[in-house]
Simulated scan of single mutants.
Amino acid sequence: MKTPKRIEPLIQDGIVDKVDRQLMSGKEANVYIVICGDNIRCAKVYKEANKRSFHQAVHYTEGRKVKNSRMARAMEKGTRYGRKEREAAWQNAEVDALYKLAAAGVRVPHPYGFYEGVLLMELVSDANGEPAPRLNDLVLTAELARQYHQILIRQVVRMLCAGIVHGDLSEYNVLVDSNGPVIIDLPQAIDAAANNNACKMLERDVDNLAIYFGQFAPELRSSDYGKEIWSLYESGELHPKIELTGKFQRSEKQADVGAVMREIDAARDADTARRLLRQAAKADGR
């Protein structure tokens, strides 16, 4: 096939030998199967902002680090330089997340490098060496649905332990190779500690999994892993090997608003008394 313009520099530099074929076209990028020496890999070519159907929502980008104040101001004002840097930051989010998650033992495609808007990474394949199917293309038995659900919940936990929430996890962003589910598509990855929407996004990711797998194993629809996982994360008790129950005990205790207000009033009165004493002491000193 004709080499996409964005991949041409990689061929000129000897990083890619040739493009075999297009694997998929998505809302954020086009993915191609490429030959690199003896290896078959994927090249994810990000679309330009005006050609994407998915735009950078503030609830995804909140908390992402910016190199310097000049760049932050430019991105906020929407200058030409700022738009360029915002695009680079959006693309780098997935690259950074892939490297971090791969190092943490999460099942994601192994990244091999990022070159001017082109992410080179592992081709996730099935037992026959063909590109692995997406989870939504499979029909599962109840037993396999439970197994895959548990694997993905463990991966969500491992991701959160690494400080990352996928932010758009569903059956469309999971491939299934001969060893089970592999999580893909991470440009909207969220910094769990820096983004105020992280809890809501994690719960949505987990709910998406429960709804999908619940088609094959209905009892999964009533599980509550999202709130359980986030509660453990907030309390500092979450770790990759933690045993989960899929249940979350909500507090039924009513807040004693009157007691809280009395404590606030008492603290205010004590502060006023201290200030009056300091004023009196200064007056005596004069």
Rank of each mutant, 00 (worst) to 15 (best):
R6F: 09
I7S: 02
E8K: 04
L10E: 04
Q22A: 14
L23A: 08
M24Y: 15
G26K: 15
K27R: 12
V31T: 11
V31C: 14
I33H: 07
D38R: 15
R41S: 14
C42E: 12
K47E: 10
A49V: 15
A49K: 13
F54V: 14
Q56W: 03
A57R: 07
R64H: 11
R73D: 15
Y81I: 05
R83S: 13
R83C: 03
R86L: 04
N92Y: 06
D96K: 05
K100N: 08
R107G: 07
V108L: 00
P109S: 13
P109W: 03
Y112P: 00
Y115G: 07
M121G: 01
S125D: 01
A127K: 12
G129W: 08
D137C: 09
L138V: 02
V139Y: 03
L144I: 09
L144H: 15
Q150Y: 10
Q150V: 04
R154V: 08
V157A: 02
R158Q: 10
M159A: 07
G163Q: 00
E171W: 11
D177M: 10
A192T: 08
A192D: 12
N195Q: 02
K200F: 09
L202V: 00
D207F: 09
D207W: 09
A210W: 01
I211G: 06
L220D: 03
K227R: 15
S231R: 07
I242E: 11
G246M: 14
Q249V: 14
G258A: 09
A259C: 06
A259T: 10
A259N: 14
R262F: 05
A267S: 02
T272Y: 13
K282M: 10
A283C: 03
R286M: 13
R286D: 03
